[in-house]
Simulated assay, not measured.
Amino acid sequence: MLYPWQQSDWQALIAQGERLPHALLLTGEPGIGKQAFGRHLAQALLCEASMAVRPCGVCDACNWLQAGNHPDFRELTPVVEDEDEESDSKAKKKPSAWITVDQVRDLNQFVHLSAHRGGRRVTLIQPAEALNLAAANALLKTLEEPPAGAIFILVSHQWRRLLPTIRSRCRRLALPLPAKAEALAWLSGQRLADAESQLAEAGGAPLAAIERADAETLAARRAFLAELADPRQLDPLALAERLDKQKMEVARVTDWLSRWLHDLASLGLAESIRYYPDEAGRLGSLAKALDPVRLMRYHDTVLEARKFSSHPLNARLVFEQLLFGYQQAVRPMNKG
């Protein structure tokens, strides 16, 4: 399935016909449907009917892919591993941060086999930046000398984190954010309450807006922003403890924080708000007294913390450090 805002990109891609590359890198903001686009392409490439416009959806190949058991399709995602490797009883499972070299070695065996249906062998890798170094190097060898009929679709939210040698072996297709009106029309069909502010907070990405709008996450975000809006009353230790007890991910909290900082800086420099228009009053009151240089330095610190949010961390300690740093960054300027 393609989303409405993807139709023109799809038509431009499929018009290339047999000139499609053996490795395609789909890039763009999270939450715009890159994975859906990649799956649609994989289905089209394996469809056994005419693929002049789109996969037919009714042939055996389409049915197998939709059911997740097409013999000529593989999807690589971060592995699921035991949360407690020492426990023998009912160990919980959690997603890893990485796609491993063993996964890529298994993939390399798959792509060198003959296709079961006599056509292509298609691989979807997402997110591609989750390839660890060993896995990336193992994949590179196959991308450099791909077997006939093997096609790779890489999906990446942060494509610059990929090895330059992998990027150079792929043709990049940058998928854009949808136009605001188109995104809001789609969100209206999904019955999303307060769609305009949710879309703004998600940076214009409709699927991210849906994901962020569940009641529990929305309440936690609003409570967090209310604390940021009154830094003199903010207790970093108490708030860090609460976030930790709520099992908030470091990535989510740094995302909220970086968006708040962006709007504070944008208000001071351009009198505009991108992410939190419903927080305009609080942002405006706070932005008046801030030192923009100090604010941007702290924003860089938050972005750096977000880079490593997928690594094993003491989340509570990270929250404490970020919140103490926030208090320092939003100290009123010394007017004397």
Rank of each mutant, 00 (worst) to 15 (best):
H311F: 06
D72A: 11
V318N: 05
D255T: 09
G28F: 07
R259M: 14
L140I: 02
Y298Q: 08
I99H: 05
P71T: 07
A150Y: 01
L207D: 11
L133Q: 14
P55M: 14
G325Q: 01
Q327C: 09
L113V: 00
R39K: 14
H40L: 13
D72C: 09
A265F: 15
R222H: 08
W10H: 14
G68S: 12
A150G: 07
D291E: 05
W256A: 10
D9I: 00
N314L: 08
D244F: 10
L175W: 02
P164A: 11
P332F: 05
A91D: 09
V318A: 09
K141S: 08
E211N: 11
L257Y: 15
D72T: 04
V79R: 11
E249H: 15
A49G: 15
I99W: 05
L46N: 02
L234R: 04
D82A: 15
A289W: 12
V122C: 08
L290Y: 08
E211K: 08
L2G: 03
A270K: 11
I166W: 01
I14G: 06
P292E: 04
P231S: 14
P178M: 06
E144P: 04
A280F: 09
R172L: 05
P71D: 13
Y3R: 02
N69A: 10
L20G: 14
F308S: 08
Q198W: 06
A44E: 01
L143E: 00
P55I: 07
Q198S: 05
D263H: 11
V79K: 11
R161A: 12
L131Q: 00
A280R: 10
L192V: 01
G118T: 05
S188M: 02
Q7L: 06
I153T: 00
F319L: 05
E129V: 00
K247G: 10
W98S: 11
I273N: 12
I153C: 06
A12G: 13
P146M: 06
R212L: 04
K335Y: 06
G33K: 04
L184R: 01
G336D: 11
G149R: 00
K247M: 11
A181I: 01
A208M: 04
W186D: 02
Q109W: 04
K94N: 09
A150L: 07
A205N: 12
R297V: 07
A208I: 00
G203W: 04
T217F: 14
W10M: 13
D278C: 12
L218Y: 09
G118C: 13
L162W: 00
A315F: 13
A280Q: 14
D235W: 07
W159T: 01
P55N: 10
L218V: 01
R316F: 13
D235C: 02
M51K: 10
Q233V: 06
L239M: 12
A67S: 11
F152Q: 01
L243H: 03
S87M: 09
L290A: 06
A67E: 10
D255L: 12
V104Q: 08
R221Y: 15
A200C: 12
A148G: 08
A209T: 00
R232N: 13
K247E: 15
R117A: 10
L286F: 10
D106R: 03
E216C: 03
P147F: 07
E29P: 04
R117L: 06
K247C: 07
Q233S: 15
S310F: 08
A36M: 03
L261C: 06
D300P: 02
R282D: 15
H70W: 11
L25P: 10
P206D: 12
D278L: 13
L175Q: 00
